[in-house]
Amino acid sequence: MQNFAFHRPKSLSEAVSALKQADEGKLLSGGQSLIPVMKLNLAAPSDLVCISSLDELRGIRTEAGRLIIGAATTHGEVDASAEVKTAIPALADLAAGIGDPQVRNRGTLGGSIAHNDPAADYPAAVVALDGEIATDRRTIKAEAFFSGMFETALDDDEIIVAVSFAVPDRAAYAKFPNPASRFAVVGVMVAQHKSGTRVAVVGAGANVFRATDMEKALDGSFDPSALDGVAVSADELTTDLQASAQYRAHLVTVMAKRAVAACG
């Protein structure tokens, strides 16, 4: 790993200015994706700004029909949170299936979505639960946030403070894990809101996306059978060692049905 300057700011504003001053600074928020990438010399930031223990980025609360989770909350904390389990049990379930226990003890919500790995689980929840990403300077709607593979709408020196999720009537996440890495080959979050059903897919393509045909079908009848014959096109999907695009397209329907069934 290349060396770098390490900063541990005491406040959000200190973190922002440390990042602004750095040549090629990066935020460190758990590091479960960033440190491996740096070890393989695929990233070599000049500065690391560690934000995982900033008070402003912590806390879980429910407010006006939305669940708000601080960006530095670990996956393990989300999984264990009574507040999350009451409001959106599917979100706790999703967090419980990320990586392995040690990754969940370090990795954070903010770190995960800022990295926007196409096979990460959280983006499915953020999109399906009509998420809003609050940063040090603005609020970004989920679909505008995830702009592409490993890309987000964040400015270089922008820091995620919290993510707010709409509490749905019911929701579930179904994942077909990559047997080697445990990332999602396909993960589908289905959430039924008063405003309509959202179906968000990760793993299958270069970026999280909504399966709008499935949403329409489920708005008609919220039952797995409503998805019979409803599939996403394989054209834009990923082919890699673990799965072809065609198989992924098939899995999206299977996982979506399972998520609907799990909604009860």
């Binding site: 390490f6 541990r8 460190l28 590091g31 479960q32 440190i35 491996p36 070890k39 393989l40 690391l48 560690c50 995982s52 393990g76 392995d100 226990p101 040690q102 990754v103 003890n105 370090r106 890495s181």
Partner: peptide, 27 residues
């Protein structure tokens, strides 16, 4: 390993298990 998979490096930090190959000493 070098990809945080094997877990031979697991130690406890603050009472929780973590992969010590995927955590900086300064953290």
């Amino acid at each position: 390993c070098d990809t945080s998979q094997c877990g031979a490096c697991v130690v406890h930090v603050g009472g929780k298990s973590v992969k010590s190959c995927t955590m900086l000493a300064v953290e």
